[in-house]
């Protein structure tokens, strides 16, 4: 397949601009393969993050035609032969160079919550089936979160409030409150019930749309709003 990659370029001290590269990749290639082809064949100064190539490290997040994507699992066939793909870095992050953003805000936020959840090994029966805890499906699989930051990039609130905890962090908070495992839940409630916390979310659900692993942070935030509301009412009447 032939593609034109219109790649965002920025080097400290210079003006941002786009460079377009014509590349040819197999039909089964993903967008990351195409970017690597541009790097390999045309310009070795193109900077971009990547590691695992199979959506488990979460380091390659960027925007393809303005939509947040993990390019390692985004097939070029989605765009068709001869297409022009505009490749931009994630929104709402400082750009170090080209497509590489400063991902520090992702990790700082997750540290505040005290994630990750460390799952205990699930018992495997003799027939190979796992014995899962009752009602596990209700937890929405937050453990699938890659911490790729695509939800922070897609969130319109992050645009104007750089201190907003953001979808990923709030979804993590909801997960911790569902199953605290000894966590200081009052600290979590204080952290999220803040001007830069839960109530900043305007429910556009762009985070849910951007999430490559169906973590559905938007729904988690809505459940969290209800939980915090109930918690505050209980506290008001001395019941919490």
């Amino acid at each position: 397949m032939k593609l034109n990659l219109k790649i965002y370029r920025y080097k400290p001290g210079s003006e941002p601009h786009y460079d377009t590269f014509a590349v040819e990749v197999p039909e089964e290639a993903n967008v990351l393969d195409a970017i690597e082809r541009a790097w390999d064949d045309h310009d070795r100064t193109i900077m971009f993050r990547h590691a695992c190539h199979h959506a488990s490290c979460g380091s390659c997040g960027l925007r393809v035609n303005d939509v947040e994507k993990l390019p390692c699992v985004t097939p070029v066939s989605d765009y068709g032969d001869g297409a022009t793909l505009k490749i931009d870095p994630m929104r709402n992050f400082p750009v170090i160079t080209d497509l590489a953003v400063d991902a520090t805000p992702i990790y700082q936020r997750m540290q505040l919550i005290g994630m990750p959840i460390i799952r205990q090994a699930e018992t495997i029966r003799s027939d190979g089936q796992m014995i899962l805890p009752d009602g596990i499906e209700r937890f929405g699989r937050f453990e699938n979160c890659l911490e790729c930051g695509l939800c922070l990039s897609a969130c319109p609130v992050m645009t104007t409030d750089p201190h907003f905890l953001g979808p990923m962090t709030l979804a993590a908070a909801e997960r911790v409150l569902q199953e605290p495992r000894g966590a200081d839940t009052e600290r979590i409630y204080q952290l999220i019930d803040d001007e830069h916390g839960l109530w900043r979310c305007h429910s556009s659900f762009e985070c849910t749309e951007a999430c490559p692993y169906e973590v559905d942070p938007g729904a988690a935030i809505m459940r969290l709003k209800r939980k915090v509301f109930v918690h505050k009412v209980k506290k008001l009447f001395g019941m919490a």
Binding site: P12, R91, N92, T160, P162
Partner: peptide, 13 residues
């Protein structure tokens, strides 16, 4: 190396 700050203009909304 100073990263280029994110565009935070309200027009982004």
């Amino acid at each position: 190396v100073k990263p280029k700050p994110a565009d935070r203009s309200p027009g982004q909304w």
